[in-house]
Design a protein around this nucleic acid. Structure first.
Lengths: 208, 208
DNA sequence: AGAAATTTCGACCGGAGCGTCAACAGATTC
DNA sequence: GAATCTGTTGACGCTCCGGTCGAAATTTCT
């Protein structure tokens, strides 16, 4: 068999197992906290022994790190594509809020880790994540700022507005349970309208 | 010396040292996570050995538990006294939001623990805290419901409204740093007006 | 001063969990 | 069938940390 082809197959299989491990780890980490979950827990939850996890990952920290990078990359891609459209700031901001809220609910376990357990990373990793979160916030700030310049948003410090937005959406992971009377769409819509009503000037009923 | 008087003095001194330990523990826990901070860390941060901590507290869990109960009791008392006034729902809700936000910023370390580390408690303790948090939310829900009945608030599911409120305020602990350009009062005011504008019917400009 | 209560110390135990390692098993290639 | 690559096993070492304990030190009372 061709060498590169074999390597490719191997990589594909390993990626599959890695994803499986990451998904299980995320679920357990979210419930029990990073330190409260052992590698044994993750492995046996999949019918493996812990050596298997160490075969696919260097150590516990790498498992955690991949969770952070994977979720961030996915969210970042989503948000960047929204920003590229040429919607007006109010509908763009609404779309961004909805998307962010839906993303949080879609992967509540991963979100819980992403917002709660940054302190479990190494100092260097924390710096990277902090920077990426700032860049992510920046996307929101730019849109809001544009709306202020166009006179359709109230001139409130963008830091305050964006932190409110992120704060509302992120808190969802703490209480949202799928299957309840409130659907993710309904919740996301509410968040968008709450912020838009709360920040838009009263002369722009288009937001309501 | 009178026996009961001596006991009283002893209790008073012990309470003082306990508070000192709790304050330090809360600060360290908030930064490093519950499991990331050892009893040795707490003790040596005060110039003690860990045996001293074990003299004043049964174990690590009791230290954590007291942090939870102390902060809850303080917040509950604040909110209950606000609810007792006969202000109309809109200004009462605004006061409650402001108060909650200010409380979170006033003790950011304790708040971080209260919202982030409930999972580190025993199952029984978690049940108690969950119940108390629900009762706390209930205070907000009642006020909002009253406003809906009076026709001054939009008829949105109270769960959604209250979780938004709590979510906004609680997220503050993650980014607020005292000494910045944004004062706690300014932040609290913004939160109150954001929610009131976002939830009140447009026919009640008194909220703006 | 001497006795009693209070507080502090430092050594120690035991368990838990991370990460390693040598060996083994199964598949694949030659 | 032998050799190699891939995946898996279970046991082990090591460190860290929660919690205990007896003794020492300090303070308070008589």
């Amino acid at each position: 068999m061709n060498l590169t082809l074999r390597e490719e197959l191997k990589a594909k299989k390993q990626a599959y197992v890695q994803d499986e491990i990451l998904a299980t780890a995320a679920k357990l980490f979210a419930e029990g906290g990073i330190r409260g979950v052992t590698i044994d827990d993750i492995a046996s939850s999949l019918g493996y022994t812990k050596s298997v996890v160490y075969y696919y990952f260097k150590n516990k920290n790498q498992v955690l790190w991949e969770i952070f990078t994977k979720i961030h990359d996915a969210w970042w891609a989503d948000m960047e594509s929204l920003v590229k459209t040429d919607d007006p700031p109010n509908s763009m901001l609404a779309s961004m809020i909805r998307k962010h809220a839906l993303n949080v609910m879609d992967r509540a376990a991963w979100s819980a880790i992403y917002f709660r357990d940054q302190g479990e990373l190494t100092d260097a990793q924390q710096k990277v994540i902090t920077k990426r979160k700032r860049e992510y916030d920046q996307l929101f700030k730019q849109v809001y700022q544009k709306g202020v310049e166009q006179g359709i948003f109230q001139d409130i410090p963008t830091t305050l507005v964006v932190n409110s937005i992120i704060g509302i959406c992120n808190s969802t992971h703490a209480w949202y349970k799928s299957g309840g009377p409130l659907t993710p769409d309904r919740i996301a819509d509410h968040y968008a309208s709450l912020v838009l009503q709360g920040c838009c000037l009263k002369s722009t009923p288009s937001a309501g």
